[in-house]
């Protein structure tokens, strides 16, 4: 995973609450067995006027000029400004992959759905929680000033406006550490393999029914 330390980028405002993962990446694209290539279909139903299917040439589709991502003024945006409960709905990590593939590195919102929040960190996308009134202000500023860019500093845990104003945000230490250094979660956990085995030994005595082999029982079931 790419480390994330500090990022400056153009901000695109998506002014609706409860943006769900079905909206971020519609289900027909979940049929892919890869992690990449979802960018053209980010917000597909909102971004295009015609229905989309995997395998189409998306550059030839009819774009919805009223959707904010299609506004030339926000072309190349890497920071998404959003409302409450962003990423609610399914666990699909494809939502994060689609945002990343499109070029988004940071999402700022007053709140996120839990699974989306956790998925983001696994992929190097930084979800930033700011108070609702701060987010409200940022929405107004982005709307009023073309080219509005923010700097998001994970090391110092602050968002810096073009005027140099700073807003602090919280990230839990463990996640921050992993993201700052782009660490592989699995490798970190496997450092504790002995502890996992010790837990399994203890647990197998305490609750042996948890250690039945489904494969063995499967033979009987047939």
């Amino acid at each position: 995973m790419e480390p994330f330390t500090r990022h400056t980028g153009l901000v695109v405002p998506l002014d609706r609450p409860n943006v769900d993962t079905d909206a971020i990446i519609p289900k027909q694209y979940l049929k892919s067995v890869r992690r990449t290539g979802f960018g053209p279909n980010l917000f597909d139903d909102w971004r295009y006027l015609d229905p989309g299917e995997p395998g189409m040439d998306h550059s030839r589709r009819r774009v919805n000029p009223d959707f904010v991502l299609n506004d030339p003024r926000y072309r190349g945006a890497t920071i998404l400004l959003a409302r409450d409960n962003f990423g609610c709905g399914s666990s699909r990590e494809h939502a994060v992959w689609a945002l990343m593939d499109y070029g988004i590195r940071v999402v700022i919102a007053p709140s996120f759905a839990d699974i989306f929040y956790s998925n983001s960190f696994k992929n190097g996308l930084l979800p930033v929680v700011l108070p609702a009134d701060t987010v409200d202000r940022l929405f107004r500023e982005v709307g009023a000033r073309p080219g509005y860019a923010l700097t998001v500093d994970l090391e110092r845990q602050e968002v810096v406006t073009p005027d140099g104003e700073r807003f602090a945000f919280q990230v839990d230490g463990f996640r921050r550490h992993r993201l700052l250094h782009g660490l592989d979660d699995i490798a970190l956990t496997l450092q504790h393999a002995d502890e996992i085995r010790a837990y399994e030994r203890r647990r197998a005595e305490e609750a042996p029914w948890l250690f039945q082999d489904l494969q063995a029982v499967r033979g009987e079931g047939r």
Binding site: S90, S91, R92, E93, H94, V96, D114, I115, S118, N119, K122, N123, D172, F174, D185, I186, L188, T189, L190, A193, I196, E200
Partner: peptide
């Protein structure tokens, strides 16, 4: 509880998940 694909991989590889209590 539901998990994302990176966590699916993590559980397959380690039988564990790094979690904070809700």
């Amino acid at each position: 509880f539901g998990i994302g694909t990176s966590e699916v991989e993590h559980v397959l590889a380690t039988q564990c998940l790094a979690q904070k209590k809700s």
